[in-house]
Write a protein that binds this DNA or RNA. Structure first.
Ligand SMILES: [Mn+2]
Ligand SMILES: [Mn+2]
Ligand SMILES: [Zn+2]
Ligand SMILES: [Zn+2]
Lengths: 158, 158
DNA sequence: TTGCTAATGATTATCACTTTCATATTAATC
DNA sequence: GATTAATATGAAAGTGATAATCATTAGCAA
């Protein structure tokens, strides 16, 4: 049973990776950019990393196997990921920019544990709808939004 | 009519200022800190400034009349304001920390125009309640939260 | 006043990026 | 496969906001 779930997760993960690689590659082509070894390596690492990773963390992880890839390239490449739509830049107020995986047309918000750093994702359609109403009542047109709940996770409360 | 409203606003503003000055002064005393000319001047400027002011802006405004007050002192003093409860630090993602006025026990969220920078405050009890429910369903205990809606304000849409 | 402590402000440091620029790589064309 | 023009890379220097340092000054209690 456990094995079965793992298999499913693995397959879904692999399919997702392939899809994102294609999206990024198409983006590169469309923009007249070049496909490079560095971009491929960084993409591979990003896709198999935590869902909310700081640039520093990703760079350190990379450096272990690819000491020749520069800091600047990692920064530049993550920006491209965001631009291509496979990643989103997020700030949890700790002074470090993080990049998270995004799926086409999906959106979610975050619960952030201020003790252990755990990040839980959630979706709430009712909240989203109310946000639109608030915006509308002020004549605003929402383009993006940010909802983050900071506090103590279940584990840290014990 | 207009005059009357202005009078009321002025009076409310003056009362509010006095109240905040007292809160800050009590805080200073309680913590064994010292009351200084700089702190008084900065507090006065802060209380009569925009509701969401960057440190830089406040510093420049101050410098016109008080060229002897240092940058570091402004930073330090605004932190004290936040600690004392009369101000709250906010980040709208433009790389500058802002400080906003807060009233005892009050909370509000923000609509931020990405074109002209206009900031509108709003409160929505239903959203707040739903946030608590989301947190509870994940075993989280919320300490603070951040809800910001970014987009185009009514004026900029025209 | 005196004496102790905290505050100030000029300066320097830090930290997370961002830019620069000489060199290397890519990919289209021949 | 060689040529070539354009983009990418990475080491290093630059930035901008904020924090720390430290010699000097100011508040305040006795
Ligand atoms: Mn997420
Ligand atoms: Mn506000
Ligand atoms: Zn936790
Ligand atoms: Zn606007």
């Amino acid at each position: 049973m456990k094995k079965c779930n793992m298999k499913i997760t693995f397959n879904r993960g692999a399919r997702m990776k392939r899809a994102k690689k294609k999206i990024f590659h198409d983006f590169i082509t469309r923009k007249g950019l070049k496909s490079t070894r560095q971009r491929d390596v960084i993409l591979d690492y990003f896709l198999s990393s935590d869902r909310h990773m700081s640039i520093e963390d990703l760079y350190l992880k990379l450096r272990a196997k690819h000491p020749n890839i520069g800091y600047a390239t990692v920064y530049r490449t993550l920006k491209l990921f965001a631009e291509s739509g496979i990643a989103r830049e997020i700030q949890f107020g700790d002074g470090q920019t993080r990049y998270e995986h995004v799926a086409e047309g999906e959106h979610h918000d975050h619960l952030v544990c201020t003790r252990c750093g755990t990040i839980v994702e959630f979706k709430n359609e009712t909240i989203e709808k109310l946000q639109s109403e608030v915006a509308a009542s002020h004549g605003f047109l929402i383009e993006t939004h940010k909802l983050e709940l900071y506090g103590m996770c279940a584990k840290c409360r014990k």
